[in-house]
């Protein structure tokens, strides 16, 4: 079976937040929940980069390890999905997740925050594929329809990719090679202009 993964290319992400809108719309995400978010590092400074993050579908997921009711399960495709019928809304997964992916729909006193919601890789939940119960709890099951997550499909610069990890790695390797050669060209250009060796000039 394929291992499904997201990959976001920081050299391409332009922080348009289109992936977030696509996700909310496709999955009818509860108010206040963002299954995906774009984080910008060094905002407004030289070297600014943006990355779109959601659940990374970890191979040995911390969220699943700390959950007191063991309500995460990993699919054959390596997706980490969550069963809202079992979840008790304690929030441990949110504390343990490196990416802050699990979120709560409400924000009540006495930790009454409803059931945790997280990115499903547009693969729904334990309900029957494509059922209305599944849609209500988890959003669209695009995977069952043979489609990839909408956030990645929508990404205008193809910074955000989703799919088989091997295929993604191939695509990225290709990008890196092109990029390296263009960097190399830039380096040669710099040297020609006699600017090489001066760290202040490059970057």
């Amino acid at each position: 079976m394929a291992r499904l993964k997201f990959y976001c290319d920081a050299e391409r992400c332009i922080e348009c937040n289109g992936c977030i809108t696509a996700c909310k719309n496709e999955n009818d995400v509860p108010w206040g929940v963002n299954r995906r978010r774009v984080v910008t590092i060094k905002d407004g400074e030289q070297g600014e980069r943006s990355l779109s993050v959601a659940c990374m579908h970890c191979s040995d997921a911390p969220c699943a390890a700390v959950c007191p009711v063991d309500c995460f399960y990993t699919t054959e495709d390596g997706l980490v999905l969550h069963d809202k019928d079992i979840c008790i809304g304690c929030g441990y997964c949110f504390y343990a997740c490196p990416f802050g992916a699990p979120q709560f729909p409400q924000d009540g006193a006495f930790a009454s925050r409803g059931k945790m919601d997280k990115c499903t890789f547009c693969a729904g939940g334990p309900e029957e594929n494509g059922s209305s119960a599944e849609y209500k709890k988890y959003g669209r099951n695009r995977l069952a329809e043979g489609k990839l997550p909408l956030c990645a499909e929508m990404c205008a610069t193809k910074a955000l990719l989703a799919g088989d990890a091997n295929v993604l790695a191939d695509i990225y390797r290709e990008r890196v090679i092109y990029r390296a050669s263009s960097s190399l060209r830039r380096g040669v250009d710099l040297q020609k202009q006699n600017l090489g060796g001066n760290p202040g000039a490059g970057s």
Binding site: E11, G47, R49, A180, S183, L184, L190, Q191
Partner: peptide, 9 residues
């Protein structure tokens, strides 16, 4: 040839 790195830190 020095290859400038797009996002070192």
């Amino acid at each position: 040839i020095w290859i400038p790195n797009p996002g070192a830190d």
